[in-house]
Each structure stands twice: as C-alpha cells, then as structure tokens.
Computed example of a mutant assay.
Amino acid sequence: MNFFEDWTWTTVIKEIIDVTIVSYIIYKLILLVRGTRAVQLLKGIVVLVAVWAVSYIFGLLTLQWLMNQLFTFGVLAVFIIFQPELRRALEQLGRGKIFTMPATEEDQAMNDRIEQVIRALNHMSSRRIGALIVFERETGLSEYIESGIKLESQISTELFVNIFIPNTPLHDGAVIIRGNQIMAAGCYLPLSENPFISKELGTRHRAAIGMSEVSDAITVIVSEETGQISLAIHGQMVRGVDQESLISKLHEELNPRLKKKPRERTSFFTRWRGDQHG
C-alpha cells in the first residue's frame, strides 16, 4: 500500500511538472506571436478546428472528409506560412531569450521608455526648449489629463520634441505619461503655493512642484531660459540634474522592483538642499 501511495504521489507530481512546463511553453509562444500577423492566422486555424468539430459531432461526412484532407496538407502549409515566426523563435531559443523571465522584458521596455525621454530632454536642453513631462504613478492624474489634448500615443523622442517646439499649441502645457503611453499634452497642472519657493523659478517649475505636492508623480522640467534640467518629486525639486543621476532616479522610482528604502531615497535631494529656496 505504501508503495502504491508513493507511486501515486510521484505520478501526480510528474503530471503537475509536465502541465506546468507545457503551459509555460504555450505562454511564451503566445508572447512571441502577439502583435504579429500570426495572430490572425491562428484565429483562422481555430475557426477551421471548430468547423471540423461541428462536422464530427453532427456526422456531416462530406464536410468532415474535406476538413481531414485540409488538415493533412495544412501541416505543411503552417510551416510555410509561419516561417518568419518559427525562425524568430528558433533564434531566440538559441540566444536563450525565449525562456527568460517576464520581468526581463518589462525591464527592457522600461529602459526603452526612459531612453526615449532622456534623448528628448537632452535635445531640448541643448536648444533651450522649455518642457514639462509628468510620470503618473499610484495617484491617478485623470483630471489633469482631461485638461489637455488626449494623445494616447507611443513614447518617442520625436513626438516629445514636436510637442514642445516653441509657438505651437501644446508648447506651454505639460505632457503626462501613464505606463508606456503619452496620455495627453498641453495639460494644466496645479501651481505650488509654497511661499518659500525661489523667485527665480517660473511657471513650469512651480507647476512641477505643485504636482509633486498633490500626488506621487515625478515631473521633469527643462528650463527655457537656461536649458537646465530639473526634477520634482515628493514636494521637493532638484535643479541641474546630470544625465546619470536622472536616469538612475527614474529607474528607481518607476520600477517598483528597484525601489530603495525611503531613507536612501531622500539622499538624492540632500546635495541640492534648498534649491527651491534659491
């Protein structure tokens, strides 16, 4: 009896492992074809399988024979039609990418988004083009998004530059980013009423500080007068942020897995203590 029980549990464990592996492979294959023309082809295959099932259930012999013939030659057709996707899958398998954790893909997507923003900031900073970019986090910013022009577009350097070109309709407002999308441009932000803010700071900087006071959003500013890049978060502002520090801070704050302890997070501001006081 003990042997039988041991054999049963061993079988169950093996079946669980088997199903888990197969499920994971199917999941990775779905990620691989997502967003490609293969999705539509897969839908067509599902329809054919459904037709075959109906012919089998209701005994439609002619239709069933036709579907059997189609499936016989369809295997070869699938390999021909899905050749690009299959080749890409084999290449990723050879590079060991197909079995990487989803977090790696998320990190890469985060890197790409931040890179697009940094490139835009550098371009505008060198040309002294004023800009105001807000990253939404836990606190929803829908009311501020509705105050601007909805875009819901992909994040790109070129789009940022076009939005903030002087004397254009969206130039004076803020761009709000939610996840991997630019939700809106030309948005109105609340101005800070802090009386201790330096008189040197203009409307963009006051709006950035105001947004950081009423939400947990991160706001990056490019000064139109000096080209200086500043960052506002937690009701504080850092002026003259260098590229390396800005990239590090954006990764730390926008990626929950990389967040540091609050004690360490505040140290980012200690080198520029008193910036908002002049």
Rank of each mutant, 00 (worst) to 15 (best):
E264N: 10
L189P: 03
T219C: 02
L76A: 05
E253N: 08
N162G: 11
G240Y: 08
R113E: 06
T203N: 15
E15I: 10
A207S: 08
T226N: 11
G35E: 01
F3K: 04
L29V: 06
T203D: 15
R95P: 04
M237E: 14
S156V: 06
S212L: 01
I21P: 00
P84Y: 15
F79T: 05
A109C: 07
P102F: 10
L246C: 10
E136W: 03
L191A: 12
L151G: 12
V39F: 00
T139F: 03
S192C: 01
H171N: 15
Q243S: 13
S147F: 00
S156I: 07
N162E: 13
S215M: 02
F164H: 08
V46T: 11
T8Y: 07
V134E: 00
A103F: 09
L32P: 09
I26A: 03
F71Q: 00
A131F: 06
M211L: 02
R271D: 01
L132I: 06
F196C: 12
K43V: 04
S223F: 07
V46S: 13
E213K: 14
I114L: 01
R95D: 09
Y27A: 14
I163Q: 01
N162V: 12
D242H: 10
L42G: 04
T8I: 08
V175R: 08
F79I: 04
L189F: 09
A120E: 05
E146A: 15
E264V: 08
Q181I: 10
H205G: 02
L201G: 07
E158H: 13
K199D: 11
Q243I: 12
K260Y: 14
V19T: 11
L63K: 13
R95Y: 09
F79D: 06
A53S: 03
R204I: 03
V49N: 09
L151K: 13
Q40H: 14
